[in-house]
C-alpha cells in the first residue's frame, strides 16, 4: 500500500505572530518555519503503519514556494520514502489545495491519505474533507485512534468530536485527518537526515500539474486582533469574590 501525507510549511507553533503594518500578511523575517504539527502527526502514523505492516510506501507532498523543500526534507528524515513538491508562488485557498491534492492522488493512487486536521496558520480545517469529496472517498476527521482492518480494506477510526470520542469504520482508500492525541511524532535523527539527502524529491510546476487550481479567496487585509488589557491583581479570595459580585457582577 502507498500512503500519501501532505506536509504544509507553517510558522513554528512557538513563534510570536506579528501582522505587517501594511496589513498584507504576517512578518516572516526571522520567523522559524516548521512542518505543520498535525501533518507531522499524520506522517508519524504512516511511518508506524509501515513499521507494523512492512509493505507500505510513504510519499510526502507539499504545495508552495521553493522553501517547502525544507519541510519535505524533514519528512524524508523522519522516514518517508520520497517527496513531491508542487511549485507555486500563489496563495492557494483550501479548495485550490484540495484540487491539487486530488490531481496528485490520481497520479499516485495511494490506498490512504493521512493529513493534518488543520494548518496552524490558516486554521481553516477544510482541506481533507474537500479532497475526500472531490475524489468521492470516505473520510474520518479529527482521528485520535487508527487501526487498519481486513487487509487494509477498511480503517477503524476514533474521532474527537465536541461531544466525546466517536468510533467509525471507513472504506479505504479514504482521507483521514489527524488530531493531537493520535501519537507523538519522532524527532529527526542525524542518520535520518543523512539518508534523506539520497531520497528522491521531485519538483513539479503547479501550472503543468493542475493549472485549474486557482484560489477563490481574496485577502483584502490582515490585522492584529484588539488588544485585551490586563486587569487588576487581587490579593485574596475574599477580594476576588467581592470584585466578581460587585464590580464585574458576573456571579
Amino acid at each position: 500500500m502507498k500512503i500519501l501525507v501532505p506536509l504544509k510549511r507553517v510558522p513554528d507553533a512557538d513563534t510570536k505572530i506579528r501582522v505587517k503594518p501594511d496589513g498584507s500578511g504576517i512578518e516572516t523575517d526571522g520567523v522559524k518555519f516548521s512542518v505543520n504539527p498535525f501533518d507531522a502527526i499524520a506522517l508519524e502514523e504512516a511511518l508506524r503503519l509501515k513499521e507494523k505492516f512492512g509493505d507500505i510506501e510513504t510519499v510526502v507532498a507539499s504545495i508552495g514556494e521553493e522553501a517547502c523543500a525544507e519541510q519535505l526534507r524533514t519528512g524524508l528524515a523522519m522516514g518517508a520514502d520520497r517527496a513531491v513538491l508542487i511549485r507555486s508562488d500563489a496563495d492557494l485557498d483550501p479548495r485550490a489545495v484540495a484540487q491539487v491534492l486530488a490531481a496528485l492522488f490520481r497520479r499516485e493512487q495511494p490506498g490512504l491519505v493521512l493529513m493534518g486536521k488543520q494548518a496552524i496558520d490558516d486554521d481553516s480545517n477544510q482541506c481533507g474533507q474537500m479532497l475526500a469529496a472531490l475524489l468521492g472517498l470516505g473520510q474520518a476527521t479529527f482521528v485520535s485512534k487508527l487501526e487498519l482492518l481486513d487487509h487494509a480494506s477498511r480503517a477503524r477510526c476514533g474521532r474527537e468530536t465536541d461531544a466525546g470520542l466517536e468510533t467509525v469504520t471507513v472504506t479505504l482508500p479514504a482521507v483521514l485527518t489527524t488530531d493531537l492525541r493520535l501519537n507523538e511524532p519522532r524527532y529527526v535523527s542525524v542518520p535520518g537526515i543523512l539518508k534523506a539527502k539520497k531520497k528522491p524529491l521531485e519538483v513539479l510546476p503547479l501550472t503543468d500539474f493542475c493549472a485549474g487550481a486557482v484560489s477563490r479567496t481574496k485577502l483584502l487585509r490582515l490585522e492584529a486582533p484588539p488588544h485585551r488589557q490586563a486587569g487588576a491583581r487581587v490579593r485574596s479570595v475574599d477580594e476576588l469574590l467581592d470584585k466578581l459580585r460587585h464590580e464585574a457582577k458576573v456571579i
Partner: peptide, 23 residues
C-alpha cells in the same frame, strides 16, 4: 463552527465545487 460543521460543511462544499470560509 464546531466539530460537526467542520467535518461536514467542507465536504458538501467540495461536492458543489465551491469555496468556504471558517470561523
Amino acid at each position: 463552527a464546531s466539530t460537526f460543521s467542520k467535518d461536514i460543511l467542507p465536504r458538501a462544499a467540495g461536492l458543489l465545487d465551491t469555496g468556504m470560509l471558517s470561523d
